[in-house]
Amino acid sequence: MASTPILSDASAVALPAHWRDFVALTKPRVMTLVVFTGLCGLLAAPGHIHPILAFTAILCIALGAGAAASLNQWYEADVDAKMKRTANRPLPAGRMERQSALHFGVGLSFFSVLLMGVATNWLAAAVLAVSILFYVFVYTIWLKPRTAQNIVIGGAAGAFPPVIGWAAVTGDVTALPVALFMLIFFWTPPHFWSLALFVKTDYAAAGIPMLPVVSGEVATRRQIWFYTAIMAVAAMAPVLLRLTGLIYGITALLGTALFAFFAFQVFLRRESDAARMAPERRLFKYSIIYLFLLFGAVVVDRWVVA
């Protein structure tokens, strides 16, 4: 797959991108969490949806996320080329023409939104459209290159899937999906900044104003702790507002306590060598498990207890 789009200078003929590179453009690994939280929103919603339509709704959420990721890579191809972590993506590696990524991303966006509208309802389709537009225009184009607080507001894009899943079943958006949105929204800063701490050098090389690059590590550790505290409130809100039951309550309490413990360790440390950042890596890895646990508990509460 290390081929270049131009076969030889003499012929100057573009080699069409491999279909696997179009799949890579959608960031399938990142999609896992999006699909899972969307599925949990769908399963936690009251009411009935035909399994085929439920499958289609989740497919549309996945395709929408893939479309947003493609457009993100189309816009950031130059930046991706400067970072070791992203340099081998299809565009910076020269395996695909930039315009192909743009056409693919725009086409997939329209297709996912229209299919969602036809298969479920237009509210779910509208929220899906907003999430794609938010990720591309607000996060990728506007905030990410300009402010160190980029992922705080940009994180909203990743918080939409449970709302979309819920809306696909009920046709409305009530308190619980909003609470789940807030949970992911406030979970995103400690999740991303713990990663940014140990890949800081990469972001610095690309000139992206990630918090550790702009404000330093101490400020980043303090902000991780600050947003963990707000996230803890958001995590307990569903049970305190009686939107979920005891299973979620216990899971959220124990899971958040462990999250806060790991975040506090990160807050106290003053380590700048990325190779020795085991607690920061642990917080990042645990933050993913944490979100899976809490969203799983919301579904268990709805299906097992009810």
Binding site: I49, L53, N121
Partner: peptide, 9 residues
């Protein structure tokens, strides 16, 4: 189509 005709949603 079959799901929609059957009143699945």
């Amino acid at each position: 189509t079959i799901a929609k005709i059957g009143g699945g949603n």
